[in-house]
């Protein structure tokens, strides 16, 4: 177990290095004028100095080397040059990370708490009212573009809750009412996703022979659903959780700006536009970490749930 995790972590680090390198190179392909707001009025001399101060005049491999050297030896993510001049990136991100993590985690919990029972009940009452109703809800959520229902929820939700349009400024941060709408918006897609897949897997499982044996044994339908079918259906579900968690992170970009949540989501778009390279790299690194850790956790969960999957064999693929 330990050596498997070590191997996986090593691979994950490798993945992160590759992602970072690609992003590092990509952002440096952007036109030079993006780095300076008043590019037209600048003399070539000024431009040269500007580029020099950002370290952009060096050859790419050298820049890359410096970046990784600082990251690894000093944990230094670089310094923001444009978003907030000469402030270390870490300092800018530090207060934002907990906000995003909190939003993401709450959304994950809500999605599981609503999506899994919904899928289970749909499977239990397959072909009956609840199943049709649930399918309708899922289709609706999947068919309507997220941006549309985000706005819808914001508009009617704020009214219903009797709270203002802008929220989650510092003073409302710990007021749970203000979290309801963003978390709900962020969770809807995943609720539909989990419910849909869980229903499908549970229906598949319910035709298996071991279910027949459980019935023969004299187990009641409820027991069969929860003690036998659910866990078997949940194993293939687990692999979707990290991916959907990633989608949540991406979704947060929009949600955070809608509700002016001081998280990292909206930031990425902002700093890409401003060509603040160090900021872009740092945020991509964070998102990639979430993805890699999510995948690792997904695999570990699968191993924990299914005795047939052995770690030693799994080590071979990813």
């Amino acid at each position: 177990m330990g050596s498997y995790i070590a191997k996986r972590l090593l691979r994950s680090v490798l993945t992160l290095v590759i992602i970072l390198t690609i992003v590092f190179i990509l952002v440096r392909q952007m036109p030079l004028e993006g780095y300076f707001p008043n590019f037209e009025k600048m003399t070539p001399e000024q431009i040269k100095n500007g580029l020099h101060s950002m370290g952009l005049d060096q050859p790419l491999p050298v820049q890359l080397y410096h970046f990784f050297r600082d990251l690894i030896t000093k944990g230094d993510l670089g310094t923001s040059r444009i978003y907030r001049q000469n402030v270390p990136v870490a300092e800018i991100l530090a207060p934002k990370i907990p906000v995003s993590v909190r939003l993401g985690t709450m959304s994950l919990i809500v999605s599981l708490l609503l999506g899994l029972p919904m899928g289970t009940l749909m499977a239990k009452y397959k072909g009956k009212f609840f199943d049709h109703f649930g399918t309708g809800v899922i289709v609706l959520i999947e068919a309507v573009p997220a941006a549309v229902y985000y706005l819808f929820i914001q508009f009617y939700g704020t009214e219903a809750l009797g709270i203002g349009m802008t929220m989650l400024g510092d003073k409302d941060f710990n007021n749970w009412q203000y979290w309801i709408l963003p978390v709900l918006s962020m969770s809807l897609g995943n609720i539909a996703y989990y419910a849909m897949w869980l229903r499908r897997y549970m229906v598949d499982e319910s035709t298996k022979d071991y279910v027949l044996l459980a019935r023969i044994k004299g187990a009641g339908e409820g027991r069969i659903m929860f003690r036998h079918i659910f866990r078997n259906a949940f194993v293939p579900m687990v692999q979707y959780i990290p991916t959907s968690f990633l989608n949540t992170v991406i979704g947060s970009i929009y949600i955070e700006s809608l509700y002016s949540i001081p998280g990292m989501g909206g930031l990425l778009v902002d700093v890409i536009k401003k060509q603040d390279n160090a900021m872009v790299q740092a945020i991509v690194l964070l998102f990639a970490c979430v993805g890699v850790i999510g995948l690792l956790l997904g695999d570990l969960m699968m191993v924990a749930l299914d005795p047939r999957i052995s770690l030693a064999k799994k080590g071979g693929d990813k």
Binding site: K208, D209, Y210, L212, L213, A214, I216, H228, R231, N232, V235, L305, D306, P307, R308
Partner: peptide, 12 residues
């Protein structure tokens, strides 16, 4: 039942 190979719950 007819098939012992698949009649047991694989996760228990």
């Amino acid at each position: 039942p007819q098939d012992p190979m698949t009649s047991l719950n694989p996760l228990k």
